[in-house]
Design a protein around this nucleic acid. Sequence first.
DNA 1: ATACATGTTGGCGC
DNA 2: GGCGCCAACATGTA
Length: 244
Amino acid sequence: MPEGPSILLMKENLLPFVGKQVTEASGNAKFDKEIFIGQTLLEIRTFGKQTYLIFDNAAIRIHLLMFGSYSIDEQTKPDQSLRLALIFSTGGMYFYTCSVKSVDLEFLSSIDWEADVMSDQWNPAKAKKKLKANPEMMVCDALMDQNIFSGVGNIIKNEVLFRIGVQPESLLGNLPPQKIKSLIAEARNYSFDFLEWKREFTLKKHWLVHTKSTCPICGQKLIKKQTGKGKRRSFYCEKDQTLY
DNA sequence: ATACATGTTGGCGC
DNA sequence: GGCGCCAACATGTA
């Protein structure tokens, strides 16, 4: 489920509940669910991989992490994995094996919404500044950094780096300006391609390097390696992706 | 069946 | 106190 585009799709699916009143709240998430009963869901906002269900006095923050999932209108998984269920007169939303907590509305204003690569508020110039401030950082870590590219996950990371022909362990400070530019542009572009492919259930078919073994350009064997401080797996072509 | 994976956090040691 | 590294967690799949 979890990279930014998938979360945007989840939001779309939850949208019919906006304007509706919560009639029941349950699940094993450890926070005061009762206070949301009788409250109207005012808005759903996403920030990268996070989702905020916004009510009058507080918001519920949901993060699917690696294995989280959700369903609508019907509980589809064992009770034990149900973190949160919100029931409305028109149906319900169910969240499983994820991080759920309540945050006050003030918290929302502390979020740097301009860091969300899929947001209308996405600010490429600001991203550029953040990259400039970290010349020693590897580009693979930069892409995964939720303060810089909120919403980007490991799949997007691998595909973006292939698209722009940059080796994952390249240092930001060594990247030529036009590579920085395409890095920022493709982080957003690929996320939207991901969104459309995911919507059509053809995402995997479009992977060029992620989980692949040969380079689609030169046919050479791809390198599979844990890279960066995050030690997340990278798939890349030594020939078609330059180490800066 | 064992290992690994679309992710983050909290705790430990320095 | 702050930083960095790593274990822990959770579930489906190969």
